[in-house]
C-alpha cells in the first residue's frame, strides 16, 4: 500500500476508484429492494441517491486528482514497526471479541487488557497483570453484578 499511495494525489485516485465500485454495489443492491412503489417516497429512492452520490463523488475525486498538476502532499503512513504494532493490537481486539462468547466477557477482557498493555509497554509486566486482574474483577462486579448487564458468561464455564 505504501508503494501505491505515497501521496495525497495517488491516495485520492485510489479512494475515488474504490468509491466508484462501492457506489455501483450500492446501486445494484438498491435495485433489489422490493415493494413500496406506491409510496410517495419508495424505500429504494434514498439508497439510489446515496449510491449515485458515492459513485459520482468517487469518480469526480479520482478524475480531479488524475488531472491535478499542483504541488502534491506526501501522506504519512505508519512505518514497519508501527504497522506491526497496529496489526497486533487490532488482532488482539479481534481475538478478544471472538473468545468473548466461549470464555466470557470478564475473563476475556482481563486477558485482553493484560496482553495489550504488556505488548505496548514490555517493561510494565506487573502493571499489565494488575490492570488485567482489576479490569476482569471490576467488569464482573460493576457491569455484571451491580449494573446487571447481560454480558456473555462463557460457554466453557456455563452451559446456558
Amino acid at each position: 500500500m505504501q508503494v501505491i499511495v505515497k501521496t495525497q494525489r495517488k491516495a485520492d485516485i485510489v479512494s475515488g476508484c474504490f468509491l466508484v465500485v462501492l457506489g455501483i454495489l450500492v446501486l445494484i443492491a438498491a435495485s433489489q429492494i422490493r415493494g413500496g412503489m406506491e409510496e410517495r417516497l419508495p424505500p429504494r429512492t434514498l439508497p439510489y441517491i446515496v449510491g449515485a452520490t458515492i459513485l459520482a463523488g468517487g469518480a469526480f475525486l479520482a478524475l480531479k486528482s488524475w488531472r491535478f498538476a499542483g504541488k502534491d502532499v506526501p501522506l504519512k503512513w505508519p512505518d514497519r514497526g508501527a504497522m506491526i504494532r497496529l496489526t497486533v493490537i487490532l488482532l488482539a481486539v479481534v481475538v478478544f471479541v471472538l473468545v468473548m462468547t466461549p470464555l466470557g466477557f470478564h475473563l476475556s477482557s482481563g486477558l485482553y487488557i493484560a496482553f495489550s498493555i504488556w505488548y505496548l509497554k514490555r517493561s510494565a509486566v506487573w502493571t499489565a497483570l494488575i490492570a488485567g486482574l482489576i479490569t476482569g474483577a471490576l467488569s464482573y462486579y460493576v457491569f455484571g453484578q451491580v449494573l446487571e448487564l447481560s454480558l456473555p458468561m462463557g460457554t466453557v464455564f456455563f452451559n446456558d
Binding site: I89, V93, V97, Y112, I117, K121, T127, L149, S150, L151
Partner: peptide, 25 residues
Amino acid sequence: VPFPVLAPIIIFCSVLGTYSIRFIL
C-alpha cells in the same frame, strides 16, 4: 498515564459500550 496503558482501556470501554447497546456482537 502512559498511552500504552490507556489505549487498551479505551478499546475495552468501546467494546463494552457498543456491546451494551443491543447486546449483540
